[in-house]
Amino acid sequence: MPTVEMTVNGKRASAQVEGRTLLVQFLREKLGLTGTHIGCDTSQCGACVVHVDGRAVKSCTLLAVQANGASVTTIEGVANGETLHPMQEAFRDNHGLQCGFCTPGMVMTAIDLVTNNASPSEEEIRHGLEGNICRCTGYHNIVKAVKAGAAAMKG
């Protein structure tokens, strides 16, 4: 079995995996980082979004071996200790989450979106969330949250 080694949330992580092990399985099962979720099997829902080398990717559509040597950030690595990241805070302030299952992927996508576009319009936000499905909120408050989070990230 191949050994993979990567930096996850700033820490070195290494484990033996099968070639077929997905990054999300590596994170959840080998590292116990269960904040990254699996909501579908066709790369549609985005519950599994993490950052690999600074870019949002669906960790269910990436093999752990493909991420060998990469720097990975998961939802567990976003807050500064017990202080929420401005995007996390914005989701709480705007009631941008209900059941919480899609939330980690939603927040990771939102941060990536704002990283590429500091002041997204509502339309750009809605388009930018195309790869993330939420069944609870109707997106109304998620869109508000991303807008507020973008403003807070600038400040």
């Binding site: 269960t34 990254t36 299952f101 980690p104």
Partner: peptide, 12 residues
Amino acid sequence: EDFRFLTGRGTY
């Protein structure tokens, strides 16, 4: 409940 969901600490 949001803090745990936003930080990946929910337990599903």
